[in-house]
């Protein structure tokens, strides 16, 4: 067995400023990794570099492609990279409006990836879209409604359905519960946990919310000033933090 994602020496500079520096890790199939740290710590820069949306200044990101095994995603051609992004990968944006087409129906939003990879049977596309709406607990009666009429939590769930319809192996999530009410957050987290387990998804979840990290992630990477300062099993990092920054982070959380 080989890792799904192999990252080494990943650095992204913005002029003199460091986005992220010398990040390296392996992600295995079915593994969920959390990236935590405060705003500006380089979490999102790192996520964008990992998900082929921001070319790193140096370092490599290799993905275990179905055809050729581990392949540097920035060295492969654009067509393959795009194909990867819409079949094997999912990207869940913090703001669902960035990940959805707000002007087309919920069904078309979910079906788009299927059509993009060649599905040409309306009935089957629609049936699969309905199935996925059900999976993410959206009433299938709303399949023809525009996302504009959906609540924030529904939009986020729709975005997740849209990503999972092609059965990806790796999902990138940027603050998936950010901007949602706590009760809506709990429902979404429960859903994500279930889907990740049932589908055996590997995921990289960026969050500043340690409770979200504890619930979703198997292991954590703590970032500060663009660098990874601590890694380990989620409960070990949170219950027995070693780095001064991690200790500060953990001790700063309000316990309700």
């Amino acid at each position: 067995m080989s890792p799904l994602l192999q990252v080494s020496g990943l650095t992204r500079l913005y002029g003199d400023r460091v986005g992220c520096k010398d990040v390296g890790f392996e992600l295995w199939p079915g593994e969920v990794m959390g990236i935590v740290g405060e705003s500006g710590s380089g979490k999102t820069t790192l996520l964008n570099c990992l998900s082929a949306r921001l070319e790193p200044t140096s370092g490599t990101v290799a993905y275990d492609t179905r055809e050729e095994g581990l392949t540097d995603i920035y060295a492969m051609g654009e067509p393959r990279r795009r194909m990867l992004m819409r079949t094997d990968w999912g990207i869940v944006h913090q703001n669902p409006r960035d990940g959805l087409r707000m002007g087309v129906s919920a069904g078309a939003n979910v079906g788009e990836r299927l059509m993009a990879v060649g599905a040409r049977h309306y009935g089957r596309i629609r049936a699969q879209a309905a199935e996925w709406l059900e999976q993410v607990e959206i009433d299938t009666g709303r399949i023809d409604d525009l996302p504009l009429t959906f609540s924030g939590g529904m939009l986020q769930r729709l975005q997740i359905a849209r990503n999972l319809v092609t059965h990806p192996r790796l999902v990138f999530m940027d603050e998936p519960t950010g901007g949602l009410d706590v009760s809506v957050q709990a429902r979404l987290l429960d859903l994500l946990r279930r889907l990740v387990t049932d589908l055996g998804l590997a995921a990289i979840v960026v969050t500043h919310d340690l409770a979200v990290a504890r619930l979703l992630a198997h292991r954590l990477m703590v970032m500060q000033g663009g660098e990874v300062v601590e890694t380990g099993l989620t409960d070990q990092v949170l219950d027995d933090p070693h780095h001064p920054y991690t200790q500060l982070l953990v001790s700063s959380v309000l316990q309700p």
Binding site: E78, V104, A108, G111, A116, I125
Partner: peptide, 22 residues
Amino acid sequence: RKMHALADYGIMHVKLYEDIAR
């Protein structure tokens, strides 16, 4: 332009899908 270069036309069917759905 990139979509044309890559013959990346799947989403064109989204429009037709919307027609049928509506």
